[in-house]
Amino acid sequence: MRKHLIGAAGLAGVTALLVGCSSAPAQSATTEAAPTPEQIKALFADWNTALATGDAQKVADRYAPNAVLLPTVSNQVRSTRAEIVDYFEHFLLNRPSGEILDSHVAVLDADDAIDAGTYRFSLTKDGRPTTVDARYTFVYEKIGGKWLIVNHHSSAMPEQA
């Protein structure tokens, strides 16, 4: 299993490389067709559906065994399934529902893609509805025929809208 270590600078470098690349779809060694950007964007809907179940285990199932989560409302880096489950057990108490505001997909090859942009979460805190806008990066890898999150970074917007 490949490890993905992509920070903000790495993502910028990958994006810059992709801008200069041919528009021909990437092919893996097995000549499997690369996914479309729309297929990668749809992975967020699957993740959001898992959030709606209120089950932290179902959300964690969307992450690869070696995934790293840099969550929005915790300072702790989550790099094990148990840590990811722990984060979502607390986060799901707010009944979150996400909406993509701006998405930029980079399909790297048939098995790897990045979706980065901004999203808005509707939450219920202390019985009152609220929203939080945040930046996100999802790095996906197709493992055993299933698209999984290998790296997820989310951080609240630093400036007021």
Rank of each mutant, 00 (worst) to 15 (best):
T131I: 08
T131D: 02
R135T: 09
L148Y: 07
R135V: 07
P158V: 02
V139N: 06
P129N: 08
Y136P: 00
M157W: 08
G145F: 12
V132M: 06
Q160H: 10
E141G: 08
T131Y: 01
V139T: 08
F138V: 09
I143P: 02
F138G: 05
Q160W: 09
A134H: 05
F138C: 06
E159D: 12
T137M: 15
I149N: 15
W147E: 01
I149Y: 05
F138K: 02
Q160I: 07
F138P: 09
Q160Y: 10
Y140G: 10
G127Q: 03
R128D: 10
Q160A: 11
Y136Q: 02
A156F: 01
G145Y: 12
A134S: 10
I149C: 14
A134C: 04
W147I: 03
E141L: 05
G127R: 03
G144E: 11
D133P: 00
H153V: 13
H152K: 05
A156I: 14
A134T: 07
R128F: 00
F138L: 04
T137G: 02
A134E: 09
G144M: 04
P129L: 07
W147V: 01
K146D: 14
K142A: 01
S154P: 04
Y136E: 06
V139A: 11
G144Y: 10
T137W: 01
L148C: 13
F138H: 14
K146A: 15
P129C: 05
A156M: 03
I143K: 15
K142N: 03
N151P: 00
Y140H: 15
N151G: 08
R135M: 01
S155M: 00
W147P: 06
E159R: 05
P158C: 01
A134M: 07
I149A: 14
I143H: 09
Y136T: 09
G145I: 08
E141Y: 00
R135H: 07
Q160L: 10
S155A: 02
M157F: 08
G127H: 02
T137K: 12
G144F: 10
G144D: 13
R128P: 04
D133F: 05
T131N: 09
D133N: 13
D133S: 10
Y136W: 04
